[in-house]
């Protein structure tokens, strides 16, 4: 049997809370196949961000096992793992420089030294697909609006062609039409990869599966919206 694209087994995270140790994740498990878009909801403070950060190997002190196409995380290596299981943090990050420079940040990193950075046409097309037709590549990225910045950050991570996209509240700083555009791009991404979204808005018809994080574990909500 073919191994799933991403598998998280029994993740556990303990943090020191105001009233002693707090089990933020207490045996959270998830199996993810290509083509899936999984939405994770849950009360605030239930550990949704902690969970997606753990999936991206972006948290110290996580107990449990993670596999990418059957290979354990330690074997894949943290940096290669992160380049394939890409986390988009909730707060969009824009680096000093132009929009072009922002989109090319991933290729300044050693982990992608043997890959070719996207050309001018690809950058332009990517921005257009996010509805940023009016944003020039030479624009000082500091002058983008919050909604534009969020989409540039998404475009940047999309250009790296990860296998799994982890989106922490992708709609948080988007208006309705931008959110709809991002939703349809999410569907298109899932044709070849898989997506996990932290979301507590009402269902937008994109998720193929919905999970709820309660008491440190995931509970299936239904097979689709």
């Amino acid at each position: 049997m073919k191994a799933p694209l991403l598998e998280a087994r029994d993740l556990r995270v303990v943090r020191s809370g105001d009233a002693g140790p707090l089990k933020v994740l207490d045996g959270a498990s998830l199996t993810l196949e290509r083509g899936e878009v999984v939405d994770i909801s849950g009360p605030s403070g239930s550990g949704k961000t902690t969970f997606v950060r753990a999936l991206a190997l972006m948290l110290p002190d996580v107990a449990g096992e993670l596999f990418l196409e059957g290979r354990p995380a330690a074997e894949v290596g943290a940096r290669v793992w992160r380049s394939r299981v890409a986390l988009l943090p909730q707060k969009p990050v824009i680096f000093p420089g132009t929009v072009r420079e922002n989109l090319l940040v991933p290729w300044r990193l050693k982990v992608r030294h043997d890959t070719t950075p996207p050309g001018e046409d690809e950058l332009r097309a990517k921005l257009d697909s996010f509805g940023l037709d009016d944003v020039a590549l030479d624009r000082d990225a500091a002058k983008l609006s919050v909604g534009q910045a969020a989409r540039v950050a998404m475009a940047r991570i999309g250009l790296t062609r990860p296998d799994v996209l982890l989106l922490d509240e992708p709609d948080a700083s988007l208006d309705e039409s931008a959110a709809a555009m991002v939703a349809s791009l999410t569907v298109r991404f899932a044709e070849t990869g898989a997506v996990v979204r932290v979301r507590h808005h009402r269902p937008d018809g994109v998720a193929t599966r919905r999970e709820r994080l309660v008491a440190g574990r995931l509970h299936g909500v239904g097979d689709s919206d």
Binding site: M58, R82, V93, L109
Partner: peptide, 12 residues
């Protein structure tokens, strides 16, 4: 925030 994004992109 920048460090989180950079490490998530695979930065050392």
């Amino acid at each position: 925030g920048e460090l989180l994004a950079l490490v998530a992109l695979g930065a050392t």
